[in-house]
Design a protein around this nucleic acid. Structure first.
Lengths: 160, 160
DNA sequence: CTGTATGCAAACCTTTTGCATCAGT
DNA sequence: ACTGATGCAAAAGGTTTGCATACAG
């Protein structure tokens, strides 16, 4: 699927390049190196159009002929999160998902407990609501996540 | 701390009894047994005034002289969640917390990344917001959780 | 009595880590 | 060259499971 220097999501390719540049700079700022493995992993995440688990990402890279190790995948994903270029989210399972942040506004997830489908949603009022409640406590929020579990339209229909 | 048939949170003792009754009925409905271990574990959770990890609960029971096994603690906590008497929440760490639902309205959590303190909060608009957004997708929500991470008032102050 | 539940310890699974080797800068 | 990065495999840590034994209904 993902070739070495893939072209993929056409309209996103320029932002992928920009994100890689940004990642590289973040690394340099911290005296860290922009290695081939890091570029490969970051690219795979940036080109993915939704949340991805570490194992799935590793599999894709392996299928594409890359020899990166599982450890490096985890280490790099953490670096991406630290650089503010990705987000780590829990969706009810026992492992994490990662999703890049490429100019998309923050969104939350609805997880269907019937078919596993994940729907992204956004409500401008949510941030305000969180802001209001944290401020009330003198709490300085850095980030927040919302997960809704239930049944999607299709699965709800088949409930008779 | 928690004696065998402790008196504890005075004002809650009657609801603890009610919750135990409810648990017992749920079990009976499913052809399951209300064993001594299940009563012990459920009581410990019901008497706890906030979120508790399985390991901490096990420790408390052991200190109180109980011989329940870790496996039974996990199995029983899951039963309680299934019975709608408890909630399993993730607060950023790699393990779950459990909190009983004894007539308290649903609340969300703010976790301080400085001192680990967890603040509970509630906003009547939140449920409406979630409801509105799920309905928009034809999604039937069963439950939702919100976690906010940041620095509490004290920790924010010590940031210079 | 019958079928569940328990305890124990081993298994699981994702994520992390130690260490020798490799490669950016 | 210097120092950080990688791969491998083992360790970790919370949670689950298989199985023989022990009880609730």
């Amino acid at each position: 699927m993902a070739k070495s220097a893939a072209v993929s999501p056409a309209n996103a390719s320029s932002s992928v390049a920009g994100a890689l540049r940004s990642f590289s700079q973040h690394l340099a700022n911290d005296g860290l190196r922009f290695t081939g493995e890091r570029r490969t992993i970051a690219t795979a995440l940036f080109e993915s159009d939704s949340h991805l688990e570490a194992e799935e990402l590793l599999l894709r890279l392996r299928h594409a002929g890359s020899r990166v190790s599982r450890a490096t995948v985890y280490r790099t994903l953490d670096l991406l999160v630290g650089a503010g270029l990705a987000r780590k989210v829990r969706l009810g399972t026992d492992h994490n998902f990662f999703e890049h942040i490429l100019g998309r506004r923050q969104h939350e997830h609805m997880v269907c407990i019937g078919c596993g489908q994940v729907i992204e949603w956004f409500d401008p009022q949510l941030a305000r609501l969180v802001e209001r409640n944290t401020k009330e406590q003198g709490f300085v929020a850095a980030r927040y996540t919302v997960q809704v579990f239930g049944r999607c339209a299709d699965c709800a229909d088949s409930d008779t």
